[in-house]
C-alpha cells in the first residue's frame, strides 16, 4: 500500500514526521481517515485522538490532540495541533481539571455568542472524556 508523509506539530515542537499508510483524524465535523492520494482538505479539529497506522491494519499509535488544524495536500498530511500528547503520557486528571475550568468559564461569561462558544468547548471536552475512559 502507498504511504504518504505525515507530520504532527504542536507550537512547542515537531512530534512526528514520517511515512505512514493511514491516519484517522478527529475533524470538527466528524472523524475522517486519510490514506495516500487523499483529496486536498483543510479541516479544524476537535479535542480527540489521532490514530496513526504505520502499516494499515497494524497497531496504531494514539495521540491526544486538543484542537487545531489538519491540512491534507498532495505532499501529505500536516496536523497543526494546539497541544499534542502521546496517549501513554496522557494525564486524565489534567483533562478533568480543564473540564472544570470550562464549567467555570461557562458560569462567568456574558453574551449569547460567548456563552454558546463556552458551552461548545465544554461539550467537546466532555465528549472526549467519555472517549478516554
Amino acid at each position: 500500500m502507498d504511504t504518504f508523509q505525515f507530520e504532527l506539530v504542536s507550537p512547542e515542537k515537531l512530534l512526528i514526521s514520517e511515512e505512514v499508510e493511514h491516519v484517522v483524524v478527529p475533524g470538527a465535523e466528524g472523524e475522517f481517515g486519510v490514506l495516500a492520494h487523499h483529496a486536498p482538505l483543510l479541516s479544524t479539529l476537535r479535542p480527540g485522538i489521532v490514530k496513526v497506522f504505520k502499516t494499515d491494519g497494524g497497531e496504531p499509535e494514539r495521540l491526544f490532540v486538543r484542537g487545531g488544524f489538519a491540512d491534507v495536500n498532495p505532499k501529505g498530511l500536516t496536523i497543526l495541533a494546539d497541544e499534542a500528547t502521546p496517549m501513554a503520557e496522557f494525564d486524565v486528571s489534567a483533562l478533568d481539571q480543564s473540564i472544570k475550568d470550562a464549567e467555570d468559564d461557562l458560569a462567568d461569561v456574558e453574551g449569547d455568542e460567548a456563552r454558546r462558544r463556552a458551552q461548545e468547548k465544554l461539550d467537546r471536552l466532555k465528549e472526549f472524556r467519555a472517549v478516554v475512559s
Binding site: A28, A39, P40, K75
Partner: peptide, 14 residues
Amino acid sequence: GEDLLKGAVYEYEP
C-alpha cells in the same frame, strides 16, 4: 512549493 497546490481545489471543513 505552492505551485504544486495551485491547481488543487481545497475542500474546507467547516
